[in-house]
């Protein structure tokens, strides 16, 4: 549905996006993850036809955005970072205007406005001036605007930026509801967002794709072993020694201790679920097991690993012996500059 090949964008001498290639399948939700200024917005602006690429090809629904911009734009809905609304207009006036310039047939405009207002929950403010609406409503009006012509492709630039937690959850649910009917590309620098809304993630940093995959895949790729956190009450040294002897355990490290209560970080070999064995070991030795949980490397850690400069030394955790095979599509940009 979206094909990006060798996209490079320069603003004068500065390189905003460098040789980025990826495809998005029909109905897929792709997340762009990266720090501010990584090139997410620029990439999206090229896909929507707002900016011409310096090099490379971008096709939306089979139409090249440079050669057949009108056809590509007809099939694209775009919500920029700040919703492009006219504060003087009412919601209905605004949606009617957008419907007209997006080429919705005159007869269908009214029903389309009704449908998208319903979907984006702006029906109750339909006749209010947009300038007087709260940020959350304005964002939803922006989303309604992007949906008004029922586009095949939706490009959402930080759709939850500036919303309160409740609105963020609502917006995410809305986006998840749209998946399947539309092909969605969304960008964010907020990590949980990606794992909650996207099927596939592109991590982008300094204009390059640093990693890609499903949120789960990314977690697995970066983690060569499983980590379990165990809290128990008992003699620390003895417990540590006992846990070490559980099959599959590589290393045990005390994390923090208060009186008799000790928390250990247990590293096990990849693919081994050692939780049951650990529990038995503690209980059989008559110590009190208080807590036992796996601790996956969070997306935050991955993100930091991928986007900070001293990647090789394992920026996410000092306890990591080495960074496992990242299966990177490209070397981190950090090594370039």
């Amino acid at each position: 549905m979206i094909e990006v090949a060798g996209l490079t964008k320069r603003y004068g001498p500065t390189l905003a996006v460098s040789d980025v290639s990826f495809d998005v399948q029909k109905g897929e939700v792709l997340g762009f993850l990266g720090p501010n200024g990584a090139g997410k917005t620029t990439t999206m602006r090229v896909i929507t036809g707002y900016l011409p690429p310096s090099e490379g090809k971008v096709r939306v629904a089979g139409y090249d955005v440079v050669e057949e911009p009108l056809e590509a734009k007809r099939r694209t809905g775009y919500l920029p970072e700040s919703p492009p609304v006219y504060p003087d207009m009412t919601v209905v006036e605004y949606l009617a205007f957008v419907a007209r310039i997006k080429g919705v047939p005159r007869k269908e405009i009214k029903t389309r406005i009704g449908e998208v207002s319903e979907k984006c929950a702006v029906t109750d403010v339909q006749h209010r001036q947009i300038g007087k609406l709260s940020k959350g409503y304005r964002q939803r009006v922006g989303l309604a605007q992007a949906l008004i012509h029922n586009p095949e492709v939706l490009i959402l630039d930080e759709p939850t930026a500036g919303l309160d937690p409740k609105q963020i959850i609502e917006t995410r649910e809305l986006i998840r509801g749209l998946a399947g009917q539309h092909t969605i590309v969304l960008s964010t620098h907020i990590l949980p967002e990606v794992s909650k809304t996207c099927e596939r993630v592109l991590v982008i940093n300094q204009g390059r794709i640093v990693a890609s995959g499903t949120p789960d895949e990314l977690t697995h790729r970066l983690q060569g072993y499983e980590t379990v956190l165990l809290t128990a009450e008992g003699p620390a040294a003895e417990m540590m020694e006992r846990l070490q002897r559980v099959a599959g355990v590589n290393m045990v490290e005390p994390r923090d201790a208060a009186d008799l209560r000790v928390t250990f970080e247990v590293h096990a070999e990849k693919g081994h679920d050692v939780r049951a064995e650990l529990a038995r070991a503690v209980v059989e030795s008559q110590w009190k097991l208080l807590e036992l949980k796996t601790s996956g490397l969070s997306l935050e850690d991955i993100f930091l690993q991928l986007t900070t400069k001293d990647l090789g030394e394992g920026a996410a955790g000092e306890s990591q012996p080495s960074v496992p095979d990242l299966n990177l599509e490209d070397k981190p940009a950090a090594s370039e500059n």
Binding site: G49, P69, T76, Y78, P84, V85, K102, G103, Q145
Partner: peptide
């Protein structure tokens, strides 16, 4: 200033 130029330029208008 308001960013609505992005709406116009990404709409199917010449």
């Amino acid at each position: 200033r308001s960013g609505t130029i992005e709406l116009l330029l990404t709409s199917p208008l010449t």
